[in-house]
Computed example of a mutant assay.
Amino acid sequence: MIQFVLLISRQGKVRLTKWYSPYTQKERSKVIRELSGVILTRGPKLCNFVEWRGHKVVYKRYASLYFCMGIDQEDNELEVLEIIHHYVEILDRYFGSVSELRPWFIVCELDLIFNFHKYNAAYYALDELLIAGELQESSKKTVARLIAAQDSLVEAAKEQASSLSNIISQATK
């Protein structure tokens, strides 16, 4: 079972966290601090698995982001690497259609920072992909369709809120 998911920039800034096991805020901060130090200092030729505090941490660097997943000792590291890659491909497909800033299609930190109005899509995709730390949806098309549906709901809510504020301002004049 996946215990947590972290997206960390090369500078050590946390861009996304998702916890599937109960950790206090103090423990979360300690996990992030310790793992950032361990993963960021590892050489690029070393394997993408780290034994840490009775868990295994599987990570992979894409562009300027490290995608990290903490798993149980008995879990398969290669399967988790595939889950990470699957998640990156989903984000790539989503942000690739949003961002015209770069010619390659690898999700990067800029997507999460500058497309802040689309930032929740990273959480939506993760929530559709993993439930309670287990892989639930393996179809990229299905996840993309669900994210698009969520985006349309958000846009409809924004339009409704805008029209309601216009009606209220008209009524108060």
Rank of each mutant, 00 (worst) to 15 (best):
D75I: 08
E34P: 02
I32L: 07
S36C: 08
Y23R: 01
P44M: 12
R15K: 04
L78M: 10
Q73Y: 10
T17A: 05
F49H: 12
S64P: 06
K45W: 03
M1G: 15
W52L: 05
I2F: 06
R61T: 03
D75Q: 11
E27K: 10
K26D: 14
S64C: 13
V57W: 02
I8A: 04
E34N: 09
L7Y: 01
G43R: 12
L35R: 03
E82I: 05
T17I: 08
D72T: 13
R61F: 04
S9Q: 05
R10M: 04
W52P: 01
E74P: 01
L7T: 09
E27M: 13
Y66W: 06
L6V: 06
N76D: 01
T24V: 05
N76W: 00
V80L: 12
Y66E: 05
P44T: 11
V58D: 00
V38M: 11
D72Y: 02
L78K: 01
E51N: 06
V14G: 03
C47H: 15
E34C: 11
V5G: 00
L78T: 13
G37M: 07
K13M: 07
K18Y: 00
T24A: 01
D75L: 08
E34Q: 12
S64N: 14
V50S: 02
L81C: 04
L6F: 04
L40S: 07
K60I: 00
T41N: 12
W19S: 03
R15S: 02
K13R: 14
K18S: 08
K56M: 14
R10E: 08
K56G: 08
Q25S: 05
R61A: 02
I8N: 09
W52Q: 00
R28N: 10
F4Y: 10
P44F: 13
Y20G: 07
G43Y: 10
T17P: 00
L65D: 08
E74N: 04
K18C: 07
V14D: 07
S9V: 03
R15H: 02
L6A: 04
K30C: 15
G70N: 04
D72H: 04
K13W: 00
K18Q: 11
K30V: 15
W52D: 06
K45G: 07
L46I: 15
R15W: 03
Q73P: 08
T41R: 15
C47E: 08
I39V: 09
V5Y: 04
I39F: 04
R15I: 02
S64H: 12
V38D: 02
P22D: 13
C68N: 05
N76S: 02
V80Y: 01
F49L: 15
F49I: 14
L46Q: 10
R33D: 00
E82S: 11
Q11S: 15
V57M: 01
Q73R: 13
R33Q: 11
G43P: 03
P22T: 14
V5F: 06
L78A: 05
I39T: 14
V31W: 00
M69S: 03
P44D: 14
